[in-house]
Write a protein that binds this DNA or RNA. Structure first.
Lengths: 305, 305
DNA sequence: ATCCCCGTATCATTTTTATTGATGCCAAAC
DNA sequence: GTTTGGCATCAATAAAAATGATACGGGGAT
C-alpha cells in the first residue's frame, strides 16, 4: 500500500493554485517533469484524475476540489509542527493577503497595522487586484484571505463583514459646484466625470449613482484612484471616490466634497475566506485582529483590554 | 530547510506508543536502525529531544507529549485523504478499542454492535485489560478509545459517561440465603466470598460493600468473572458480580440474586479518550454510535430509530 | 565489584526512490 | 500548414533511506 507523500500534495496544491504545471514547478522550486510525475503518481494512487485535461490546460475537477482543502490543511499542519514545540515563540510563517484597490492603497494601515505589529516575524504578502480577481485567487487557495468591496456570492467563500466605506463626490475648490451649499440632481448637467476602469467595484457603484443624474458631458477613465484624484485637482473634472482616498487632499484644501446627500454611496468592505480553508494560528490570528481592530475609529489609540 | 517527513512522524508515534524503538520498528515493519535514525533526524531538525533517555528506556518528555497529538493527527489526516474522495464509500480503516474485563466480555455486543454493523469495512481491534492499563494505553495513543468502569482522573483524558452498571450478590438457588425474602447485613456472617483479583474495579467495589458486612468466613480469589460464576454455581460460595455477567445463569435458574437492597452497588461505565486526540470520522463515528445506542435498556430489543 | 544481557546508537553497503535534462507528443494560435 | 507553448515520457544520475553488522552503555545477576 503506497503512501501519499507531502511532495505529491505540494505539487498538487501548487498546480491547483497556479493552474499550470510549469508555474507550479517554479513556485515550489522543482523541475517541470518532477511536478508532472508527482501529480501523475498521486492520481494513480488515488485511482482517479484530479484535473480535467482540456487541451493544454488543467482544470480542477470535482475530486480535485474535494481534495484541495484537505491537502492544503495537511501541509500546513505539517509545517506548523516545529513551531508548536517552541513554547512562546511567535508563529513566524507566511500570510498571503489580497485586497481590492481601495482597501489595499488607503486602508492598508487599518487592515494590517495591528497584526503586523503583534506578529513581527510573519511575512505578509499583499496582493492588490480587483474584487473578482481576489475572490478567484482565494477560491483556488492562492490567497489566504481577501479584503474586498463588492458583494461576493460564491458557495465556497465565506464573507466576514469588516467595516463600512463611503464614496463622496469631489471637485476642485474653485469648481462652480463646489461653491454652492445645496445641490440637486439637475445641477450635474454638463459636468465631466472621471471614473475608474471597468471591473472596479468603485466604478460599479459610481455608475449606479450616475444613473440618477443627468447624462455626463464627458468621461475620463483612469486605472487608479490616485490618478483620478490628481486629475480632479488639476481641474479635469469631478469624480466619485472613496472618502479615505482623498482625506489628505481635503485637509490640504486641494479638494472639496460636494453635498450630494441625495445619493447613497455607502458600501460594505468584507473579508473573504475559503470556507474549507484550514484556519491555522496565523490566519485565525489575522481574522481575529481585524475583528477587534475594526471598531476602533483610529489607529493611534490602544484599547486597554 | 529540511522538511519533516511522514516516515519520521510515523517512527516517532510508534516509539511513543510502544515505548521502545525495537517494538516500534516491528510495529511499522521497519528495521530497528531505521527507526532509530528517523527519530534522531526528527529530533535534530526540531532542535530538541522528544524523549528523555534514562538508562535504556525512552520516556516521552514535555516536547514529545506536545508533539504526539499533532503528529498523530497529521498522519491520520494523511491516511484519510484517499478515502475522502470516494463519495459514499465506507471509511474502512482501523479502530483500536480497549475495554475493561467486564465490558469486554459481557457488553461487547452493546458496545460494538451498532458500530460494526454500520461500518462493516472497519477493522476493529478490541484489547481487554484492567482500567489502569487501558487508560495508560489511551494516554500514549496505543488505543483510540477505552471503555472502563473505574473513575478516571487524568488531565489529558476525557471521560464520557456511557451507561450504568450494577453489581449483584448471587448464590446457588439452594443456598440458605437464597431462600429468604429479606436479608440484613448480619445474615452474611459465616459465608464464603469469591472475589476477583486485586486491581479489578469489580473487586474494589465489592470490597467497599463487604466493609458494611460481617467479616467473611472464607475468601476465594479468581481472575475472571466467568470462573467466579462457575464457582458459585458449583456451590463454592457467594459472589458479587456484574448483573450482565450472570444474566444467562439467572435465566437458566442456576443462580439467584440475593435481595441486598441495603447495598449500593451501582457504578458508571465510561468511555475514555485522549483529550487532544484527533477525532477522525472513524473515532467520531464510534463515539456517536455509543451515545445513541447507550440509552437502550437491554441488548435483546432493538430500537426503531 | 564484575560479568552478562538487553536494547539503543552508529557505520558502511546496498537498494530504492526521486530529480534532472532531453525528447516526444498534442492542442491551440497564426 | 506551420509554429508555438505546454504536458507527458524516458534514461541517467544524484540523493536518500533501509539493511545487516557492530559498537556502546546501563541494569540486573552472581
Amino acid at each position: 500500500m503506497p503512501n501519499i507523500s507531502p511532495r505529491q500534495l505540494e505539487a498538487f496544491v501548487a498546480v491547483a493554485t497556479t493552474g499550470s504545471v510549469g508555474r507550479a514547478a517554479q513556485a515550489i522550486h522543482l523541475s517541470q517533469p518532477a511536478v508532472s510525475m508527482a501529480l501523475a503518481e498521486l492520481e494513480r494512487m488515488l485511482g482517479q484524475a484530479l484535473f480535467d485535461r482540456v487541451g493544454r490546460r488543467l482544470l480542477l475537477n470535482e475530486a480535485g476540489s474535494a481534495l484541495l482543502p484537505r491537502a492544503h490543511e495537511v501541509l500546513e499542519r505539517l509545517r506548523e509542527l516545529p513551531a508548536s514545540l517552541a513554547p512562546s515563540a511567535a508563529p513566524g510563517g507566511q500570510l498571503h493577503i489580497g485586497a481590492s484597490n481601495t482597501v489595499g492603497n488607503y486602508l492598508v494601515g487599518e487592515l494590517l497595522g495591528g497584526f503586523v505589529s503583534a506578529h513581527p516575524q510573519v511575512a505578509v504578502h499583499l496582493t492588490i487586484a480587483n474584487t473578482e480577481q481576489i475572490v478567484a485567487q482565494v477560491n483556488r487557495f492562492a490567497l489566504d484571505v481577501g479584503c474586498v468591496e463588492g458583494a461576493v456570492t460564491h458557495p465556497d467563500i465565506e464573507v466576514l463583514p469588516w467595516r463600512q466605506d463611503r464614496l463622496v463626490v469631489c471637485a476642485r475648490p474653485d469648481h462652480p459646484l463646489a461653491r454652492r451649499r445645496r445641490l440637486a440632481a439637475r445641477d450635474f448637467r454638463e459636468v465631466r466625470w472621471i471614473l475608474r476602469e471597468h471591473g472596479s467595484a468603485t466604478r460599479a457603484l459610481t455608475e449606479r449613482a450616475l444613473a440618477a443624474l443627468p447624462p455626463a458631458a464627458g468621461l475620463l477613465e483612469l486605472g487608479q484612484s490616485e490618478a483620478i484624484k490628481q486629475a480632479v485637482i488639476a481641474g479635469l473634472g469631478i469624480a466619485c471616490l472613496p472618502e479615505v482616498a482623498i482625506a489628505d487632499a481635503l485637509a490640504a484644501g486641494k479638494l472639496r466634497v460636494l453635498s450630494t446627500a441625495f445619493l447613497d454611496l455607502r458600501r460594505n468592505l468584507s473579508l473573504v475566506v475559503h470556507r474549507k480553508r484550514y484556519r491555522g494560528p496565523l490566519l485565525q490570528g489575522f481574522l481575529d485582529s481585524t475583528r477587534s481592530a475594526a471598531p476602533a475609529p483610529r489607529g493611534g489609540r490602544r484599547s486597554t483590554a
